[in-house]
Computed example of a mutant assay.
Amino acid sequence: MPRHSSSAGPVITLYDTPGTRSQTWMPTVWRIRFILNYKRIPHRTVWVEIPEVEPTLRAIGAPPSSHRPDGRPIYTLPVIVDPSRNAQSPQILSNANNIAEYLEASYPQRPVFPEGSRALQTLFVHYIQEVFAKPLLPIMVPLSHDRLPARTQSHFHDTGVARSRTGTPGPGTGPGQALPPGPQREHAWGLVKEQFDFLAVILEKNVGDGDGVVAQGTHVSYADFALCSVLLWIEQMAPQDGWARVREWNGGRWARLRQRCQDYMDVF
């Protein structure tokens, strides 16, 4: 597959937050990175540790990704800055779904929303965020916390901030304790497997109409990137206890999906 260069002409800046090895890990950011790579859009990464997310985003004029019930803004990643249309007044966007819509409209080549699929894909991604990933939280949030830079870990303890269901910082009571080996952890993974089993049954309905791996047809789409982003979160933050399990579930379906997305995992 032809690769794009992050240094040729105007490039999009993607704001990301690193793990302990300066790796991308946050599912919502992975979604946008997948789209940029799939569409072969030149881009570069700016790494921002979580304690600096809000001041950094305010400084560049990024809109908040959401608001608290009292109206106070919440600043989370991903954020992109796109100077390609107007270098003096670049587009600055937050919220993964908003960014995905913008990239699809502004860079229509290699669409991630094939014709007629936008509504169903939007529902699918909502399901992944709100239902599918929910049982992962008591397992993955503490494990993710332990693999973040020390300064970020201190930030969560000092401020009582916890990560949301998609891995982004949000209001809460802290990351909690990792589940110890034993019945409680096995029960938690059992609840996760129920979601994977249900989704596998739904996706099996595509057999005969597609390749049996992606959400629709034979080409990856935004739905696949949203799901694969969760797989990569598990792989990166729980490689032994998590990904070692998940990759074997449902006849290896999830390992095959991850492999289908392999070409779009470059980090610039």
Rank of each mutant, 00 (worst) to 15 (best):
A105P: 10
A162T: 11
V79F: 07
P138R: 09
V131P: 05
T122P: 01
N95L: 12
F156R: 01
A87Y: 04
S117W: 00
L137F: 14
G167V: 14
D146K: 05
Q109S: 13
T168Q: 14
R151Y: 00
L123T: 13
L103M: 04
S89V: 11
A133Q: 09
E130G: 13
I80E: 08
N95M: 09
Y127E: 12
D146Y: 06
K134G: 14
A133P: 11
P83D: 02
Y127M: 13
I92R: 03
N97V: 10
L93P: 07
Q121E: 11
R163L: 14
L77E: 06
L123S: 08
P90A: 07
H155D: 06
I80H: 09
E115T: 11
Q88I: 07
G172M: 06
F124R: 08
Q129P: 02
V125K: 04
Y127T: 00
S89D: 10
V79I: 12
V141P: 01
G172H: 05
S84R: 14
P111E: 00
S94F: 03
S144P: 01
T168P: 07
S144H: 00
S117R: 05
T76M: 13
L123K: 07
G167Y: 02
Q121W: 00
S106E: 09
G116D: 02
Q88K: 10
H126Q: 12
P149N: 08
P138I: 01
T159K: 00
P149H: 02
G170H: 05
E104L: 04
Q121D: 04
P108L: 02
E101G: 02
S94L: 11
Q121F: 06
P135E: 06
D82A: 09
S84N: 10
